[in-house]
Computed example of a mutant assay.
Amino acid sequence: MKNLIFILLVFVSTLAQAQNSELFEEANDAYANNDFETAINKYEKILENGETSVAVYYNLGNAHYKLNNVAPSIYYFEKALQLDPTDEDVQNNIEFARSMTIDDIPVNEETGLQKSINSFISTFSYNTWAYLAIALSIVFVVLFLLYYFGRTSLQKRIFFGVAIFVFLLGGISVFFAFQQQEIQFNNQFAIIFAEEAPIKNEPSQKGDATFSLHAGTKAKVLEDYQGWVKIELSNGTQGWIEDNYLRRL
């Protein structure tokens, strides 16, 4: 019975992958023919099927960009960068998309050692650091076996020294993986999807609107309260916005 269930799961998984692959090709063809609406529908269908990838998010961002849909374009480029922060194509295209936004908000740059550390950790995603740690663990085991079965004292010293070095690198990778996970957990962001959204000084319709934000602007999510979200902009400005005006990354 267990074997039958396993076979069925494998079959369903294979069928879903084949379907998503077909949808991806159809979406790419629609994009190539400038039928961006059809391409968007098919890419979104892939996401609905539970598959995520840099390519799908990237292509979705491009399709929305072609239609001048500022907020969705930036949103999907941001989703692609969450999976691979080093992708240069995504980095370049998101800058083009950001140039279409209305709000020009300066960035308060971090300074000091912590900025350098966070910048280095953010070079890779949580998964990449985790995979690197696993790879280094495998290399450590191989080196330890070579040390154990080494025939000469020189070989043993070399293999032991390299094994310890690799072990330390693996430990650092594990630490960076958890740090990156914590950074992502503590830094929840959202994209403004409303054409114009009033930002209030309190989570209430009675609150005063201190300023407005427009489609495509990125904000950090600080707090949720009864359908309202407290956000912080890149310049440190804070305020409350209705939850339905934004989409979380």
Rank of each mutant, 00 (worst) to 15 (best):
Lys2His: 06
Asn3Lys: 10
Ile5Met: 08
Phe6Ala: 11
Val12Lys: 00
Val12Thr: 03
Ala16Ser: 08
Leu23Arg: 14
Ala27Phe: 10
Asp29Met: 08
Ala30Arg: 07
Asn41Thr: 01
Glu44Thr: 03
Ile46Gly: 04
Glu51Ser: 07
Val54Asp: 06
Asn59His: 03
Asn59Pro: 05
Asn59Arg: 04
Leu60Tyr: 05
Asn68Pro: 12
Val70Cys: 10
Ser73Gln: 09
Ser73Thr: 12
Ser73Lys: 04
Ile74Ala: 01
Ile74His: 01
Tyr75Glu: 04
Tyr75Gly: 09
Glu78Asp: 07
Lys79Ala: 09
Asp84Lys: 03
Asp84Tyr: 02
Pro85His: 02
Glu88Leu: 02
Val90Glu: 05
Val90Asn: 02
Asn93His: 15
Asn93Val: 13
Ile94Tyr: 08
Ala97Gly: 14
Thr101Tyr: 02
Asp104Gly: 11
Asn108Arg: 11
Lys115Asp: 12
Ser116Gly: 03
Phe120Thr: 15
Thr128Val: 14
Trp129Asn: 13
Trp129Ile: 12
Ala130Ile: 06
Ile138Gln: 06
Val139Glu: 06
Phe144Met: 13
Thr152Pro: 02
Ser153Ile: 12
Lys156Asp: 10
Phe159Val: 06
Phe160Cys: 06
Gly161Val: 02
Phe175Asp: 04
Gln184Met: 11
Asn186Ser: 11
Asn187Pro: 10
Phe193Lys: 14
Ala194Val: 13
Ala197Arg: 11
Ala197Cys: 15
Lys200Tyr: 15
Asn201Thr: 13
Pro203Gln: 03
Ser204Ala: 06
Phe211Lys: 04
Leu213Phe: 14
Ala215Pro: 13
Thr217Val: 10
Lys218Met: 07
Val221Tyr: 04
Trp228Arg: 07
Val229Thr: 15
Ile231Phe: 05
Leu233Tyr: 11
Ser234His: 10
Asn235Gly: 12
Asn235Tyr: 09
Thr237Lys: 07
Gly239Asn: 10
Glu242Val: 15
Glu242Leu: 14
Glu242Ala: 13
Glu242Gln: 15
Asn244Val: 12
Asn244Ile: 11
Tyr245Thr: 13
Arg247Ser: 08
